[in-house]
Amino acid sequence: MFEYITNILIYDWLSLDPTHHWVKSLHFFIYDSIKISFLVVFVISLMGIFNSYFPIDKVRNFLEDKKLYGLEHLLASLLGAITPFCSCSSIPLFIGFLKGGIPLGVTLSFLITSPLVNEIALILFLSIFGVKITVIYAVAGMAVGTIVGFILGKLKLEHYLEDWVKEQLKEKIQQSVLQDSRGLKQRLPAIKEDAFDTFKRIIPYVLGGIAIGAIIHGFIPVDYFERYMAKDNLFAVPISTLVAIPMYSNASGIIPVIQSLVSKGIPIGTAMAFMMAVIGLSLPEAILLRKVMKLKLVVIYFFSVASSIICLGYIFNILI
């Protein structure tokens, strides 16, 4: 449907020549802009409703009760993936988990997976790369959260939390729980406003990402990257990951770029490592984490997440 609209617009109304580089770019830009905006609006509206009903205190109580010999990390990752993520709530959530008696490692499993595997990323992946790659991506993101959380948990890093956090953890009191008895109709106005805000916040990244994707799509020859980033180039994965860390975008902005890169011959593992590092690790995130963790723990966190992303990149390049 989106393809059809774009074709009519570009070839019928504007009668542009489909062989030109910039026409190819324009086609990519318009097609992706319509499709992605449509999907993003759909997903954030749906997630807004889900979020409004989401019982985060129940999730925490659930994790609290479970001592599963390491499996609690997998569980925390799984919950991180399905929990709607708002970065402004991530620190209160982090403190709330720790205060509820959930170990630091398990809390980190949750915190790492939450931005990596999120609903917008999954829907866009599904629409661009299909079921197989989407499932692999989701499993990979949860694997990063599970493994890194498990290892960091074993390292006993609690003393690297900021002093005020440690102070807070001494008092193990019950978190505030309030019943929300509003019906959907009463919730909708706030959900709508929130969805609109989210859309306004992410749309510059989305259009920016699509513009970069469009330029790559139209102007870079198909085999261009193969010369530099082929599967047998051992440095491609670590370099893509390291380059991506300082970059900040969200999933909806980075996926159109990934789409173009993969179609121009970048191996999927390298591309996924790049994407995970862009959305999972960033400077704003480091600044946020620094508020609750001492610098050393922030560095350990970044180092271990980056290493596991690099490992996954290699594994995917071998397997797919």
Partner: peptide, 8 residues
């Protein structure tokens, strides 16, 4: 954090 809320 002192008010024990997990969501702002």
């Amino acid at each position: 954090a002192k008010f024990n809320v997990m969501k702002t």
